[in-house]
Computed example of a mutant assay.
Amino acid sequence: MALSKKLLLTPFILFLFINSLLASVDTVATFSKAMNKEIKALVITPNSYSSDKSYPVVYLLHGYSGNYKSWLEGAPQIEELAEQYQLIIVTPDGNFDSWYWDSPEDATSKYETYITQELIPYVDTHYRTISSKEGRAISGLSMGGHGALYLGIRHQDIFGTAGSQSGGVDIGPFPENWNMKKYLGEKSAFPERWRAYSVMGQLHLLSRDNLPLVIHCGTGDFFYQVNLKLHEELTYLNIPHTFTSNPGAHNWDYWKESVQYQLLYFHNFFQSED
Rank of each mutant, 00 (worst) to 15 (best):
L14H: 10
S20V: 03
H267D: 09
Y265R: 06
V259F: 04
Y111T: 01
G201P: 00
P56N: 04
W178L: 11
K110C: 02
N36Y: 08
E79R: 13
S98R: 01
S131C: 07
T219L: 15
A41R: 11
R193E: 08
T45S: 10
A107D: 09
E79K: 15
E257Q: 08
W99L: 05
L206M: 11
M1F: 05
K256G: 08
E257T: 04
L213A: 09
W255T: 06
S198K: 02
V169G: 03
I171P: 00
Y183E: 03
V28G: 08
K6L: 10
I130P: 01
G94S: 09
Q117T: 12
V226S: 06
A29Y: 15
F96L: 10
G152F: 06
E112C: 00
L8G: 11
E38M: 14
S164L: 12
L263R: 04
T125P: 00
S4K: 15
E233Q: 12
L234Y: 00
Y127E: 04
W255Y: 11
N95E: 10
K33C: 06
Q202W: 07
E233T: 12
N246V: 11
S65Q: 15
F190V: 08
V57K: 03
K6G: 09
P173M: 05
N19D: 05
P76R: 14
I153D: 00
Y236E: 01
P46Q: 03
V199G: 04
E257A: 03
S142R: 13
S188Q: 15
G168V: 14
D97S: 13
F15G: 00
A2K: 14
F222I: 05
T161I: 14
A107I: 08
K256F: 06
T27V: 11
S70W: 10
A82L: 11
A137R: 13
V226C: 04
F190R: 14
H231C: 07
Q86W: 05
T219Y: 14
V43P: 00
E80K: 06
E176A: 09
G163T: 12
N179D: 10
F174W: 12
G145T: 12
G74L: 04
R154H: 02
A189L: 13
L9G: 09
S109E: 04
L264C: 02
N251W: 04
R195W: 10
G140Y: 11
N95Y: 09
Y150T: 00
L61F: 15
F269Y: 14
E176T: 14
E79V: 01
F243Q: 07
F243C: 05
W194Y: 12
